[in-house]
Design a protein around this nucleic acid. Structure first.
Length: 479
RNA sequence: GCCCCCUUCGUCUAGUGGUUAGGACGCCAGAUUUUCAUUCUGGAAACAGGAGUUCGAUUCUCCUAGGGGGUGCCA
C-alpha cells in the first residue's frame, strides 16, 4: 500500500465499500455495478473494501452474503478484499499526524453534553453539531479520568466545494460543517476518517456511491485537504426508491440479491435492469454487460431518484429467459431449486429422468415464463403423478363430449408408429380435419387430460416429452 | 429546525433555446395462434406551479410547492 500525497497514476481505480451488517441489498448491488462498469469501461481496477470498523455490527455471514451476491451478479473484483478493521493502526497514525499539525484536537465532552448542545442549537435555529468547546481550550483544563475523543479541526469560514461528476458543483458553507470525531474515546477510528485514509491508500480515483453520502463528501474533502492529499472524483448516484416513491423498504424491493435469485430472476436481467435504473445510453434498453462496458460513463447517470419497477424487471427477465440456452437455464435452476419461492409446491430436487424431461421440455417452457419460478410452475405437469389432479377449468373442459372425442383420438394415437412432435401433429391434425373440427377443439381437452390445466406449452411437444406410455395413460385416466 | 440534492407520460428514461416532446415497461384495441406466452400493428398517456432572460423556453436564472438525503464517539 502506497502513501503518496499525489495520485500520479492516470489509471482509474474504483471501489465498492459495503458494511457487512446484512445482505447485499439492491441499492448496494447497483452501486457495485456502476463502480464495476466504470472501472471496466476505463480499463481500470475495481476494488472491494469491507467496512467493518463497527465490530459489533459486522458479521462473517454478512461478508459471505455480500461476496456471494457480487459473484452471482458476475461483478468480479480485482485483488483481495480489504478489511477495514485491519487498518486501525494506520488510521490512528494519520490522526496523530493531524494532531501534530494542529488540525485535530482532544475533546472531552460527554455524550450528555453533546446531546444538550444539539438540543440548544435546534431550539435557537442554528445549524446543529458540535460547538467547538474544546477546540481551543487548553489540554490542562481536561477533566480527570475522561478519555478524550479526537476531533477534526474543520475550517470555520469559507466554503467547501464538491465538483460532483453526477450532481455538478455543490457548495457547502463551512460554518455549517462541524468538527467531526476522527477517533472515538476508545481509540477506534470512525468511518469518516477511515474512508479517507483507505481510499487514499488504495489509490481510489473515483468514488461512486449513494447520494446519501453527498454531505459526507464535503467533510471528507476537508480531511483530504488538511492532509494535503488529492481528492478523488466524487460521483453521487441518486438512491433507488420503492414503487410508491418512498424509501425502499423490505416490502418492496430492498431485498438482498439472493432474494431476487429465489424469485427466479437471472443475473443478466437484474444487471441490465439495474444498469438502466438511473443510467442511460440514449434509448437503449436491452444490452449485455459487455455492451454496457463499452457505453458506460458517469455522464450518463441521472440526477433524480428512480423507483423500482418489478413489472419492467419481469419483462426483461422474460427476454433473457427466452434468449438463454436450455443448458444455461438448467444450470440456473439446478442452483436455485432449493431456494425458489413460490405459492405453488415446487420440487426441491429432481431425479435424473426428471431433469432430462425438463431439458427436453425447455424450448416450450422458456417461451412462456417471466421468471424461473414461473417456468417451474408451468413444468409441474412433467413431474405430476397419475392420476393427475385437475384444475377447475380443466375439469370443466373435460365434459362428456370432450371425453368422447378423446376416446376416438386415443385409438388413433395407440396405433401411431412414430411418437414425436411432428408425427403427432400430423396425426392429430388429420383427426381434427376428419371430424370437421378446429384443432383447438381437440387440443384443449387433450391438454387438460395431459397437464391438468388449460394452459401449457404446445400440445405436440407435451405429448412428445411425456412419451407414449405416460401420455396414453393420462388420457385413459380421463375416459 | 438547519444544510444539501432532485422534479419530462402511471414507472424507467431520451432530450442540452426553435422537435408533431422520442423510446421502453405497464395499460387499452386489433392481427397471428392448438391454450397460454411470444410476435406484429395501432391507441390513450408527460415537460410540478409562478416569475424572469430571450424573437423564441422542456432546455438558462430566481421563487414556491412537492419528494429525497444528511444532521451520531453508525457506516
Amino acid at each position: 500500500m502506497t502513501d503518496v500525497s499525489t495520485n500520479t497514476s492516470a489509471r482509474v481505480v474504483t471501489r465498492f465499500a459495503p458494511s457487512p451488517t446484512g445482505f447485499l441489498h439492491i441499492g448496494g448491488a447497483r452501486t457495485a455495478l456502476f463502480n464495476w462498469l466504470y472501472a471496466r469501461a476505463k480499463g481500470g481496477k475495481f476494488l472491494l473494501r469491507i467496512e467493518d470498523t463497527d465490530r459489533k455490527r459486522s458479521t462473517p455471514e454478512a461478508v459471505a452474503a455480500i461476496l456471494d451476491g457480487l459473484d452471482w451478479l458476475g461483478l468480479r473484483w480485482d485483488e483481495d478484499p480489504l478489511y477495514q478493521h485491519t487498518r486501525a493502526e494506520r488510521h490512528r497514525a494519520v490522526v496523530a499526524a493531524l494532531l501534530e499539525k494542529g488540525r485535530a484536537y482532544r475533546c472531552y465532552a460527554t455524550p450528555e453534553e453533546l446531546a444538550a448542545m444539539r438540543e440548544r442549537a435546534r431550539a435557537e435555529g442554528r445549524p446543529p453539531g458540535y460547538d467547538g468547546t474544546w477546540r481551543d481550550r487548553h489540554p490542562s483544563e481536561a477533566p480527570e479520568g475522561v478519555k478524550p475523543a479526537i476531533r477534526f479541526k474543520a475550517p470555520r469560514e469559507g466554503e467547501t466545494v464538491i465538483e460532483d461528476a453526477v450532481q455538478g458543483r455543490v457548495v457547502f458553507q463551512n460554518a455549517n460543517l462541524d468538527d467531526l470525531v476522527l477517533l472515538r474515546s476508545d481509540g477506534t477510528p470512525t468511518y469518516m476518517l477511515s474512508v479517507v485514509v483507505d481510499d487514499h491508500d488504495m489509490g481510489i480515483t473515483h468514488v461512486i456511491r449513494g447520494d446519501d453520502h453527498l454531505t459526507n463528501a464535503a467533510r471528507q474533502s476537508q480531511i483530504y485537504d488538511a492532509l494535503g492529499w488529492q481528492r478523488p472524483v466524487f460521483a453521487h448516484v441518486p438512491l433507488i426508491h420503492g414503487p410508491d416513491g418512498a424509501k425502499l423498504s423490505k416490502r418492496h424491493g430492498a431485498l438482498g440479491v439472493e432474494a431476487y435469485r429465489a424469485m427466479g430472476y437471472l443475473p443478466e436481467a437484474l444487471c441490465n435492469y439495474l444498469a438502466r435504473l438511473g443510467w442511460s445510453h440514449g434509448d437503449d434498453e436491452i444490452f449485455s454487460m459487455e455492451q454496457a462496458i463499452e457505453w458506460f460513463d458517469l455522464s450518463g447517470i441521472g440526477r433524480a431518484p428512480a423507483r423500482f419497477d418489478f413489472a419492467k424487471l419481469a419483462n426483461l427477465n422474460g427476454h433473457y429467459i427466452r434468449g438463454a440456452s436450455d443448458e444455461v437455464l438448467i444450470a440456473h435452476i439446478r442452483r436455485g431449486l432449493g431456494e425458489f419461492e413460490s405459492k405453488a409446491e415446487l420440487p426441491k430436487n429432481l431425479s435424473k429422468e426428471e431433469w432430462d424431461k425438463l431439458r427436453r421440455a425447455m424450448p416450450g417452457l422458456k417461451e412462456r415464463a417471466k421468471t424461473l419460478v414461473e417456468l417451474l410452475e408451468n413444468a409441474r405437469y412433467l413431474f405430476a403423478k397419475r392420476p393427475l389432479r385437475l384444475e377447475a377449468k380443466a375439469q370443466k373442459l373435460l365434459n362428456e363430449e370432450a371425453r368422447a372425442l378423446l376416446r376416438a383420438l386415443l385409438k388413433e394415437l395407440e396405433t401411431l408408429e412414430e411418437w414425436n412432435a411432428a408425427s403427432l401433429e400430423r396425426c392429430i391434425k388429420a383427426f381434427a380435419e376428419e371430424k370437421g373440427l378446429k384443432l383447438g377443439k381437440v387440443a384443449q381437452p387433450l391438454r387438460a387430460a395431459l397437464t391438468g390445466r388449460t394452459i401449457s406449452p404446445g400440445i405436440f411437444d407435451v405429448l412428445e416429452v411425456l412419451g407414449r406410455e405416460e401420455s396414453l395413460a393420462r388420457i385413459r385416466d380421463r375416459l
